[in-house]
Amino acid sequence: MPIVKTTVIAGNPKAGSRTLDASRLVAEALTGSAPDQIVDVIELGPGLLGWGDDAVAAAVETVSSSDLIVVASPTFKATYTGVLKLFLDQFGTGDGLAGVVAVPLMLGGGPAHALAPDLLLKPVLVELGATTPAPGLYLLDSTYTTDSRISDYVARWGGVLTAATRVPAE
């Protein structure tokens, strides 16, 4: 069964960022088509600071009803951004992302934080109930469009991720 719904989530404090671009490229490489939905978290604005905002609730529903999500952040102070954390806080602990396969993706200026997707972002996604059957992906923000890191990742892990999104036959 093909992936039914793919969503990218970009947690960059700048709308329309390289983080968003990279997450789109990863989703397209994994599925062969553009993502079905895009959540550019910063566009949710002050609704992220509380509970009950309609736009935030709709974004949460979009993400939680996806089969595959690419959750992306630039590396800020050696971790993911606060704006992404505000968005992830909107999900219920343990089951908010149940049944969703997630790819943790982070971009940075150099290789010093290459383990950040696995050490920092992946555990949060798992805590929220996501399945993360492959390692996270770290990209250099200056070369992600010209190097082979995305295609290498998809060649190694694409089948695992695609298989994890399949719904078993009843």
Rank of each mutant, 00 (worst) to 15 (best):
K14Y: 15
L119V: 15
S64D: 07
G32I: 01
T146N: 10
S142Q: 13
F76N: 10
I42S: 05
A34I: 12
G109M: 07
K85M: 02
G94T: 05
Q90I: 06
T79E: 08
L97K: 08
T146A: 12
I69N: 05
V160S: 13
T6W: 00
L115H: 11
G99C: 00
L48A: 01
L115Q: 12
A72G: 08
S148T: 15
V56Y: 08
E127L: 15
I69C: 04
Y153W: 03
Y138D: 05
V39R: 02
D118V: 08
S151C: 12
G11Y: 09
D152F: 07
T31F: 07
S148M: 14
S66E: 01
K122C: 07
A114G: 12
A164K: 06
E61G: 11
S73D: 01
S142A: 14
V154D: 07
G16F: 09
T143G: 04
V26Y: 00
A34M: 13
V83L: 06
V26E: 01
A134Q: 06
V103P: 01
A57T: 15
D141P: 09
R166W: 13
D21Y: 12
G47K: 08
V103H: 01
D141F: 07
P35K: 11
P13R: 02
D53T: 02
G32A: 09
T131F: 12
A164F: 00
G11V: 10
M106H: 00
I9A: 05
L97Q: 06
D95Y: 14
S64W: 09
